[in-house]
Design a protein around this nucleic acid. Structure first.
Length: 318
DNA sequence: CATCAGGGCCCTG
DNA sequence: CAGGGCCCTGAT
């Protein structure tokens, strides 16, 4: 266990309107043991330039954000400045929602979602490497199993950090799995995914992918690069484009299980065709996936706040 | 008990 | 470009 005793603080003022809770907590995200959330606060482990950190995000009246960085050693200014930029990027704290809201409010259903989650940003705590690990354990498994795999991996190869009275696990450093055999990974019940996880780790360790420069490429290049990674197919690419590369307009992939969920979500019925669903979502133009994010998160937040959606319970098998 | 079908992807033919 | 196989696990 590593105790993180150094602290650095800074403030971020996001664009308005800002909703801390809906931005820093997504009830449908399944990862465990690497974060704790309570109203107005999120503790999150993370690595920046390979350095394990404890991050504490606090809402200051839903107007600004207080960030406390816990580290094992003193951090220099460049490190902190780039970390701050990265946080702004990952949680989309500079996103201007005006245009999307104007468009979205023309649709009664989405208007309700926007109202409920007013100021919410899309966003994800993970780097591309970390998200790829998550994406791979999502494949061909229901939620409870993905959780089990994530927990097993994190417990075995992650690093235990103690900060601000919280004991949380931090995902391993790129290259860690180099000395781990495929058999050893399989023992954690990740199955055939062991091979993909190892190969992704290897490719990143060799520096074949540079996340920051890939962000600057166009969508097609990003798609091509991602799908070339072993174990990454269309479904995983689609998640990555939204959560890691912030492509709000890409919404062209609906898998059978999502088809059922979106039928309820968009059209309040049991089973709509993929064409029907895509047609519905096309009205949101360059904000297609962002619109879905609002509709989707609305249901999850309502569920968290006590409302019951039978169709959701049936499908998620958490 | 055995068999099967997944919240994909790779590989083969 | 269609379809079999894959780790596991719960459902039947």
């Amino acid at each position: 266990m590593t105790e993180l005793t150094y602290t650095t603080q800074f403030k971020i003022v996001p664009t308005k309107p800002f909703n801390f809770d809906a931005t820093f907590y997504k009830p449908d995200h399944f990862t465990t043991d690497d974060h704790v959330y309570e109203t107005g606060v999120r503790w999150q482990t993370n690595r920046w330039n390979g350095v394990p950190l404890g991050l504490k995000y606090e809402s200051v009246g839903n107007v600004s954000l207080k960030v406390t960085v816990f580290s094992g050693k003193k951090l220099d200014t460049v490190f902190i400045d780039t970390l701050k930029e990265e946080i702004i990027y990952r949680y989309n704290l500079n996103l201007d929602l005006t245009e999307f809201y104007t468009l979205g409010k023309k649709n009664i259903k989405l208007a309700k979602g926007i109202d409920y989650l007013y100021g919410m940003r899309p966003g994800h705590p993970s780097s591309l490497y970390e998200y790829l690990i998550i994406g791979i354990i999502l494949q061909n498994a229901a939620v409870y199993r993905s959780i089990a795999m994530f927990r097993a991996l994190l417990t075995t190869y992650g690093e235990e950090l103690l900060f601000d009275g919280k004991k949380l696990l931090c995902l391993w450093k790129i290259g860690t799995l180099n000395n781990v055999s495929e058999e050893e990974l399989r023992a954690l019940k990740v199955g055939y995914r062991a091979k993909s996880i190892k190969r992704i780790d290897e490719e990143f360790a060799q520096g074949k992918i540079d996340e920051l420069s890939l962000r600057k490429e166009d969508t097609e290049t990003q798609k091509k690069t991602l799908i070339s990674l072993y174990g990454v197919g269309p479904a995983t690419v689609w998640y990555l484009l939204f959560d890691v590369f912030h492509r709000w307009e890409v919404f062209d992939h609906i898998s059978p299980w999502e088809q059922k969920l979106y039928s309820h979500l968009f059209l309040n019925k049991e089973s709509a065709t993929v064409e029907e669903l895509l047609k519905y979502i096309n009205q949101f133009g360059k904000y297609k996936h962002l619109a879905v994010h609002y509709l989707w998160e609305e249901v999850w937040w309502r569920r968290k706040n006590g409302e019951v959606f039978q169709w959701l319970e049936k499908e998620i098998r958490a």
